[in-house]
């Protein structure tokens, strides 16, 4: 006996399980949106209290002591971002190219890939501990922005390597064959066809890394230190700064929060500055990606 087939277009059968599932999904989405928005609004409201031009344009704890500001920390954070990316991006992209294009696919590459993935899961404070000891033995200074940046470079390398590797793997075989078929040497093919095609992936990894660098604090307390000064008396200072202590925004936030009391509001102001900094850096990175893509598609 055949079951009757329902031919109606309007009388849709509603199942209870469908409705329940739909409600659950909408609830989860609502919770996520509410939490994110709530947190941002909370930080903005609390942060506005202590935020002023004075807060942005003076370094913290400069003489006389009751000065509250984040100028030095903003600059330190930018230093950390730039140096870390300058070190980590070429090494990460290079390693990704080696692993996907040159290394013989086998047990060794699988071990390297497994190791990089494990590296990505290590708590950052362990990187900090390692970096402070390892780079102290090289530079013989306890704390410096360079030490911090190099430690962060090790930390973001797995992200850059893995994301770039995935991007390289998505480059169509046709592009490779086309290039090789014209008699192009392998490195020429990689440079002219593979890398331009995965520039988006590389930029994504850079944006993710920026997020990690700006948000990092545990690894930096051990390595870059907590200094919040802003001393640029000569052009040479721009470079020597690298070998000096320099606390990032997150480290400064930690300090304000730890003192608590009337200084608590400055912790929130610092948090607000952090949020805005991340936002600006991400927008810049997206703009760069957009311009590169536009230039490529002609």
């Amino acid at each position: 006996m055949e079951k009757p087939v329902i031919n109606s277009l309007t009388k849709k059968r509603r199942r209870v399980s469908d409705i329940v599932l739909k409600v659950l999904i909408f609830t989860s989405a609502a919770i996520v949106v509410a939490l994110t928005l709530g947190m941002i609004i909370y930080i903005v409201v609390k942060g506005m209290e202590g935020l002023s031009w004075n807060f942005l344009s003076t370094p913290a704890f400069s003489y006389p002591y009751e000065n509250y500001g984040v100028l030095g920390n903003i600059v330190n954070t930018l230093y950390l971002v730039v140096i870390t990316l300058l070190v980590a991006t070429p090494i990460g992209v290079g390693a990704a190219i080696y692993l996907t294009e040159y290394a013989k696919q086998g047990r060794l590459t699988r071990i390297i890939e497994f190791t990089t993935e494990t590296l990505a899961g290590i708590p950052s404070i362990i990187y900090g501990l390692f970096g402070s000891v390892f780079f102290y033995n090289i530079f013989k200074v306890n704390y410096s922005i360079l030490t911090g940046a190099l430690t962060l470079s090790i930390m973001v390398l797995p992200t850059i390597i893995r994301t770039t590797q995935e991007a390289i793997k998505t480059v169509p075989l046709g592009y490779r064959e086309g290039s090789i078929g014209l008699g192009a040497p392998k490195w020429h093919m990689i440079r002219t066809v593979v890398l331009p095609s995965c520039i988006d992936g590389i930029l994504t990894s850079v944006i993710l890394s920026i997020g990690r660098i700006v948000g990092e604090s545990a690894a930096l307390i051990f390595t870059a230190g907590i200094a919040a000064d802003f001393n640029f008396d000569s052009i040479a200072d721009i470079f020597t700064k690298v070998m000096n202590q320099g606390g990032s925004l997150t480290v400064q936030l930690y300090q304000y929060a730890q003192r608590g009391g009337s200084e608590m509001k400055y912790a929130f102001s610092t948090a607000l500055v952090l949020l805005i900094t991340v936002l600006i850096i991400n927008i810049c990175a997206k703009l760069v990606a957009y311009r590169i893509r536009k230039k490529r598609s002609v």
Binding site: I180, G181, G183
Partner: peptide, 27 residues
Amino acid sequence: NLLRRRIGMVFQKPNPFPMSIYDNIAY
């Protein structure tokens, strides 16, 4: 590389590079 310069190849699926027409031919 020299061999493939003398023996060229056209593939099943058209595979121009994601570049301008000019740059494709000049590649």
